[in-house]
């Protein structure tokens, strides 16, 4: 099916819009889907949802690379890794919108290997079955740390 927005590329998904109480499906290509998401995001800014974040005036920006919060919310791109440190609290609502989460729970650079985590999980199961809760707690903590540590 051809994208109903650009009428050029192939549609690979759809968006639902409620117009006058009527739910309508619009089949779109990935490019138009991304564009529509960005437009929706920008329009939130216009009605003041981000007014508390000072997105509009561009007042909040990374002191290292100068990328503004507005630019990040419009493009989804940050300028440097310092943006994540300095604008951390402002990025969380944006991340919740894009990723439905704002906290990492995967592995980290010093995590144990997949096999080791699987091994720890097997040991944990065994410890629980044997009602060795002290060991289970220790294993749980090691698994938590190796999966990234942040919950």
């Amino acid at each position: 099916m051809i994208c109903q927005r650009c009428k050029q590329r192939e549609a690979t998904g759809y968006m639902e819009k409620t117009i006058n109480g009527l739910k309508t499906r619009i089949y779109v290509c990935p490019d138009c889907f991304k564009q529509a998401q960005l437009e929706m995001f920008s329009s939130f800014g216009d009605v003041g949802l981000f007014s508390g974040l000072n997105v509009h005036g561009g007042g909040i920006k990374c002191s290292k690379c100068g990328t503004t919060l507005r630019e990040i919310s419009d493009t989804c791109f940050v300028g440097c890794q310092n943006c994540y440190t300095e604008l951390s609290e402002h990025l969380k609502p944006i991340l919740r919108n894009i990723q439905s989460a704002a906290m990492h729970i995967g592995s980290g650079p010093n995590s144990e290997s997949v096999d080791e985590v699987a091994e720890l999980e097997a040991q944990l199961k065994k410890a629980v079955a044997e009602e060795n809760y002290e060991l289970a707690l220790k294993l749980q903590e090691r698994i938590r740390q190796s999966k990234g540590g942040a919950r």
Binding site: Y84, I98, A101, M103, H104, G106, G108, P109, G148, A150
Partner: peptide, 28 residues
Amino acid sequence: DRAIGKEFKFAFNPSFGYLTSCLTNIGT
């Protein structure tokens, strides 16, 4: 990843995970 990670310190933050240029790739 482990081998390359020995050569470079990757940009990582405990809250956001691996830091990427685009917010759609952050975390893992």
